[in-house]
Design a protein around this nucleic acid. Structure first.
Length: 886
RNA sequence: GCCCGGGUGGCGGAAUUGGUAGACGCGCUGGACUCAAAAUCCAGUUUCAGCAAUGAAGUGCGGGUUCGAUUCCCGCCCCGGGUACCA
């Protein structure tokens, strides 16, 4: 009676697949549960043990939810556009579609070997023209939508009101106006360019150490190129508000809020001395305007040339040239030293009437606010540093009452910067009738804004950090844009009925250095002529990898529909996604982009929910042990041997330190799921990944840990598959209690995604059964149902051994009978001054007064109370007895 | 710097409306079975002292609240992640 997992696991996987056991259809008579995994990029390396972690968790939830009567949608697919397949094509000439197909096949085989209950009829692939046809279709919807700020809603471009003054200027101006409102637009943009990948990348893909997220090299630089951009900032407020109603990890919500970066403040116009121009700044602290002693504009500010005086021209030009050569990275990383140059001109502080110098400095960013600031050096660290560097005046207007005397004096004298709250000083101008001295910060801000507003030189404003989303790449292996550029300059979208625009056949995948996509070489595909003979050129950029993953959860709902992206009726039934599980690395980008698209589709009436993902859960990373020498150099795992809990180098004998690190080829500590499945079985792999610790924790992989759960599964099999242990008749009372505790604990824990403790409860139950030596058939069958979501192959096998028809996976979850859980006695821990001394078993319904009597009268109490006085006795029924002595 | 997490035995980790710290598993120790080994089963296993009964200490560090703190409050230290001149 061997635990012959390899035999029966294959058998049941085949059974599930052949009988489409987990296929689901929209069925309004049942409650639905849409459970989604972040679909993988099918890399050539195959599945990693990190993948099955999230997949197993969702699989357990899905199997449990089915047993609880839900109609479960649980699909899987491939996010298969992307660079590696294309790099491989450049090196070998193999078409990316072929590589992709092969990788998908590997991934599918590996995933199926884990017994995951996906509905494989819904498998999708972002590179399939039948799929990306609809990605293009959605892009066209974005292109044809504008955002009505008043209604806070996207609307069809045909409904865009054209202002009279624009109309007067003629059709070209109208077109330009419309272009300026579309959610997708084509424009010259200063973009990050990766010399290694030969493509642009989004701001978000450039990490703050200056490396490109995709390839890891630091070969990124700034370039101006014609690019497709999406106006995601228009949805900033909606994206922010929407977070409130979502059941997401607080950290992810914080990161998104941070990324959106809402700030409230005011715009203020400053008169420029000697020019009939105003300089507009954005500030979050208009109440500190009295302390503004100079101004700074970004080197790219549009008024730089106008403002700069003849005398300063050379200096300014040199500075701007130098600033342009610096990447954003240099600008920020070398932030210790502030740089800048005087323009030679002054602005007028509207509250003090004083002339304040206008400087140019690259610590002011062109893309945020108005690209110009009023500097309040006394109360802003950056302004203070700059003022000290260039000897500019510092006027304190907030008396730091909380600071210690030395610091306070320095702040008041302008020798230190104070960024906390304080009491206004020097903040009145009787001539103007403005005085905020003595006011609270809140009143100060609103008073100044009110004053500025009355005079038409300022108003309250909201600003966001989030920028337009760079949405094109100069690569081959991505969705082509359904766009044609005509020779007369017009841009038009491909008609819906002509979608998809497929990728041209080519054998040149190498992108050009100039920012030309490989598609530009596909002459035949490239050239188009319309009905009236006008010549056009197809868009040669392709979409970024985010595109396909922005809406895949919608396609799963109706994956074979060739008339529309999905049926509205089905969408209405299945959406939103009830549980979405994936890695935290997608906390901002994928999840924000996807929410943005979804909101546009919602505004257009294409989807029925405002948000796509109701509950989000991030599984933690699975790491591995690695070894390093005292000097800190890494040693590959094959050169390490263990002796008495210590680790040594097999060749040098040097003692090594065990550390936890990411699995990597270079450390030779990568675990391949295929190996685990063949040595211990899929159920062991599933169970171990769930037993390692909380799902959201990062935790190291250990082989002995796998053996531990493998051992448990063997124990389950040996006991429950041995019909000698399975008897008829009445079940033992303790066993019934243990069983029902287990049903309850496992059910509750699955609902809470606490799989590790659910497994531990099943181990406790199994240990109990070993002690009892036998259980009834009913108990055994019930336990098979309980373990089924975790170890489905084993559960099916046991179910069959008991002579039942498959499948145990389709049976209802056993109900908890509370009557078996009732305790009639409780072992009170009796403590003296908080230290537990002994246990006292008493009936649970014993009145408090009698519990006290019993505790004090107990023989063991005497030695603790000897020579002391009982001050009081604390009794919490069914919890504790604490006797306080003096 | 700022924003999130997190620090519990030799190891992974349990336990928080404040109520027996260390569930469960690994490892280790001992025993049973065996000619022997593997496999399996049984028992023990926070540390220190003790033959033992038992006692003392103990959840990153220092204070505090409480009959009682891993859990709450104040002040620190360390680790992981995110973010960074956003005015």
């Amino acid at each position: 009676m061997e635990y012959n997992f390899s035999e029966f696991e294959k058998k049941w996987q085949k059974y599930w697949l052949d009988n489409k056991v987990f296929a689901s259809e929209a069925d309004t008579s049942k409650p639905k549960f849409y459970c989604l995994d972040m679909f993988p990029y099918p890399s050539g390396a195959g599945l990693h043990v990190g993948h099955p972690e999230g997949y197993t968790a969702t699989d357990i939830v899905c199997r449990y939810k089915r047993a609880k009567g839900f109609n479960v949608l649980h699909p899987m697919g491939w996010d298969a556009f992307g660079l590696p397949a294309e790099q491989y094509a450049i090196q070998t000439g193999t078409h990316p579609a072929i590589t992709t197909q092969k990788n998908c096949d590997t991934f599918r085989r590996q995933i199926q070997s884990l017994g995951l209950s996906y509905d494989w009829d819904r498998e999708i692939n972002t590179t399939d023209p039948a799929y990306f046809k609809w990605t293009q279709w959605i892009f066209i919807r974005l292109y044809n939508t504008w955002f009505d700020a008043e209604l806070q809603k996207g609307r069809p471009i045909s409904e865009l009101p054209i202002p009279a003054n624009i109309k007067q200027q003629g059709s070209e101006a109208v077109t330009r106006y419309i272009e300026s409102k579309r959610l997708a637009y084509y424009d010259n943009a200063q973009v990050w360019w990766c010399n290694h990948c030969k493509t642009v990348c989004a701001n978000e893909e450039v990490l703050n150490d200056g490396s490109h997220e995709k390839c890891g090299t630091k070969e990124v630089e700034r370039r101006f190129l014609k690019q497709w951009m999406l106006r995601i900032p228009l949805y900033a407020e909606r994206l922010l508000q929407g977070l409130d109603g979502l059941d997401w990890p607080a950290g992810v919500k914080d990161m998104q809020r941070n990324w959106i970066g809402k700030s409230t403040g005011a715009e203020v116009d400053f008169e420029i001395d000697g020019l009939n121009k105003k300089l507009k700044v954005y500030t979050t602290r208009p109440d500190t305007l009295f302390g503004a002693t100079y101004m700074v504009i970004a080197p790219e500010h549009e008024l730089v040339n106008v403002i700069t005086t003849e005398a300063q021209k050379v200096d300014v030009e040199n500075y701007i040239k130098a600033a342009a050569l610096k990447s954003d990275l240099d600008r920020t990383e070398l932030s210790k030293e502030k740089t800048g140059v005087f323009t030679g001109r002054y602005a007028i502080n509207p509250l003090t009437g004083k002339q304040i110098p206008i400087w140019i400095a690259d610590y002011v960013l062109t893309g945020y606010g108005t690209g110009a600031i009023m500097a309040v050096p006394a109360h802003d660290t950056r302004d203070f540093e700059f003022a000290k560097t260039f000897n500019l005046p510092v006027v304190c207007i907030l008396d730091p009452k909380e600071a210690d005397d030395t610091l306070r004096e320095k702040v008041l004298a302008g020798d230190a910067c104070w960024t906390e709250d304080g009491a206004y000083i020097n903040s009145a101008n009787p001539v103007l009738g403005l005085n905020i001295n003595g006011m609270s910060k809140q009143d100060g801000i609103s008073t100044v804004i009110g004053w500025l507003g009355d005079r038409g030189i300022g108003k309250a404003t909201v600003n966001f950090k989030i920028r337009d989303w760079l949405f094109s790449r100069q690569r081959y292996w991505g969705e082509p844009f359904p766009i044609i550029h005509w020779e007369d300059g017009e841009i038009s979208v491909v008609e819906d009925e002509n979608l998809p625009v497929e990728l041209p056949k080519t054998d040149k995948y190498q992108p050009g250095d100039s920012g030309e996509s490989p598609l530009a070489n596909a002459t035949e595909w490239l050239q188009v002529v319309d009905k009236i003979g006008r010549k056009g050129r197809r868009e040669t950029n392709t979409m970024p990898q985010w595109a396909g993953s922005c809406w895949y959860y919608l396609r799963y709902i109706d994956p074979k529909n060739d008339k529309e992206p999905f049926s509205k009726v089905k969408e209405n039934y299945w959406m939103p996604v009830d549980l979405y599980v994936g890695g935290a690395e997608h906390a901002v980008l994928h999840l924000l982009y996807s929410r943005f698209w979804h909101k546009v589709l919602f505004d257009l009436g294409i989807v029925s929910t405002d948000e796509p993902y109701q509950k989000l859960y991030n599984q933690g990373m699975i790491l591995a042990f690695a070894y390093e020498t005292a000097a800190g150099s890494k040693v590959t795992s094959d050169l390490v041997e263990e002796k008495d809990g210590k680790y040594f180098h097999t060749q040098t004998g040097e003692e090594l330190k065990q550390i936890v690190a990411k699995m990597s080829k270079s450390l030779k500590n990568v675990v391949n799921p295929d190996d685990v499945v063949s040595s211990y079985g899929a159920d062991s792999l599933r169970l171990y990944e769930m037993f390692m610790g909380p799902l959201d924790a990062t935790k190291p992989w250990t082989e002995t840990g796998v053996k531990g759960v493998y051992n448990f599964l063997k124990r389950v099999y040996y006991f429950f598959a041995d019909t000698n242990n399975i008897v008829d008749g009445e079940e033992d009372k303790e066993t019934l209690k243990a069983l029902h505790q287990t049903i309850k604990k496992v059910g509750d824990d699955v609902e809470d995604m606490k799989f590790n403790t659910a497994i531990s409860q099943m181990m406790i139950f199994t240990n109990h059964c070993y002690k009892m030596k036998k259980v009834t058939r009913e108990t055994a069958e019930t336990f098979a149902k309980v373990i089924a979501p975790f170890a489905p192959h084993l559960a099916e096998e046991l179910w069959a051994i008991y002579g039942n028809e498959p499948s145990v996976s389709l049976l209802p979850w056993p109900s908890v009978n509370e009557k078996f859980l009732v305790e009639d006695v409780f072992a009170y821990p009796v403590s003296f001054n908080g230290k537990t001394r002994f246990n006292l078993e008493l009936p649970v319904d014993m009145p408090v007064a009698e519990v006290e009597k019993a505790a004090l009268a107990h023989e063991s109490s005497a030695r603790w109370m000897e020579g002391k006085q009982v001050v009081k006795v604390v009794i919490v029924p069914k919890k504790i007895v604490n006797i306080v002595l003096k």
